[in-house]
Design a protein around this nucleic acid. Structure first.
Length: 312
DNA sequence: AGGTGATGGTCAC
DNA sequence: TGACCCTCACCTG
């Protein structure tokens, strides 16, 4: 999936597209018919993300709770205004409605009367999600209460994560992926952030220095908002600098639906993959040249440089 | 054209 | 530990 930055970006897109409107809600695939019926025509109050969980609040204390899992996608696209008169049934007043491709479990479509007025209409299609359910406010609170601090949320408290890390015998690589310890970090950010600080992924949490944790957290606060803004995970120093300077705007960088693709144009214009260690097993470390290693940690592939990452 | 692995997490066994 | 979710990008031909 989609790590936390993808969900926060998605919450922003849904908010922009639907907050204050009452979209038509359907389930073309048929697996969310009851939920869609309850949401249909109800006003959207807002969308928000917490870690990798997405919540869309509807009027009447009803929340849509989505978790994309590994393969889920949620595309939000503006409808193209119709330029020629048509009587096709697949039209909104003034807009062409794209057909639902594949197994669309949930579709949000700007309300017809609203499309007339504002001139902005959207369709959002959810596919492959591991979770799509209605939730009460209490249920939302319970879900959030099980999550550790999310670096993309203003009120996040790094000490809350540190209290668990500092007493844990589990490796820091394992802990970074535990959403109850820290919410939003996934398999790409985990490998990359550990490399950026030269931390040995196998180091137990209780052997980590407090200063190291503070540096890791501060770095997530730097990197993840870039991920939200660009819809891409950017970790290499030169590309981080470029992003901070305002480069890589969305018209220049192809944004994949899942927000993880690391392909960018090189000076020759060809697309080039850029990570320190993620998925680079067997290739030379960008810093020391020794081969990047990989191992399965808690069922996920971890990547690191055995020579550079010896600190803690 | 077809096969594979993946940014995740839950639940059954 | 494995099935599920059933998409998407990247390989092999």
């Amino acid at each position: 999936m989609p790590e936390g930055h993808t969900l926060h970006r998605l919450a922003g897109a849904l908010d922009l597209a639907f907050a204050g409107t009452s979209p038509a809600v359907s389930s073309p695939q048929g697996r969310f018919l009851d939920g869609a019926a309850r949401l249909n025509g109800r006003e959207v109050l807002g969308a928000d993300a917490w870690g990798k969980h997405l919540f869309v609040e509807f009027a009447g204390n009803v929340f849509l709770h989505v978790h994309l899992g590994l393969i889920g996608t949620f595309d939000v696209v503006p409808l193209a205004p119709l330029t020629t008169l048509t009587t096709s049934p697949l039209t909104h007043p003034g807009y062409a409605i794209p057909p639902a491709i594949g197994a669309v479990r949930l579709r949000l479509l700007t309300g017809a009367s609203e499309a007339w007025g504002s001139g902005a209409a959207y369709v959002a299609d959810l596919r492959g999600a591991t979770l799509c359910e209605l939730a009460t406010p209490d249920r939302v609170d319970e879900t959030v209460a099980r999550l550790g601090p999310d670096p993309l949320r203003e009120d996040a408290d790094p000490e809350q994560a540190w209290r668990r890390i500092a007493k844990s015998p589990r490796s820091i690589a394992d802990l970074l992926m535990d959403q109850a310890v820290l919410a939003g970090v996934g398999n790409v950010y985990r490998s990359e952030i550990l490399f950026r600080h030269r931390v040995d992924p196998q180091r137990p949490g209780r052997r980590l220095r407090p200063a190291t944790w503070r540096a890791l957290w501060a770095d997530l606060l730097l990197l993840m908002p870039i991920g939200v803004r660009l819809g891409q995970i950017v970790t290499m120093a030169d590309q981080v600098d470029e992003a901070l300077a305002g480069g890589y705007d969305e018209s220049a960088v192809p944004v994949s639906p899942t927000g993880v693709s690391a392909w960018r144009p090189n000076p020759q214009g060809a697309l080039e993959r850029r990570y320190y260690v993620y998925k680079r097993q067997g290739e030379p470390c960008h810093v020391c040249g020794s081969r990047v290693r990989t191992a399965l940690v808690a069922g996920r592939n971890l990547f690191w440089c055995g020579r550079c990452q010896r600190r803690g």
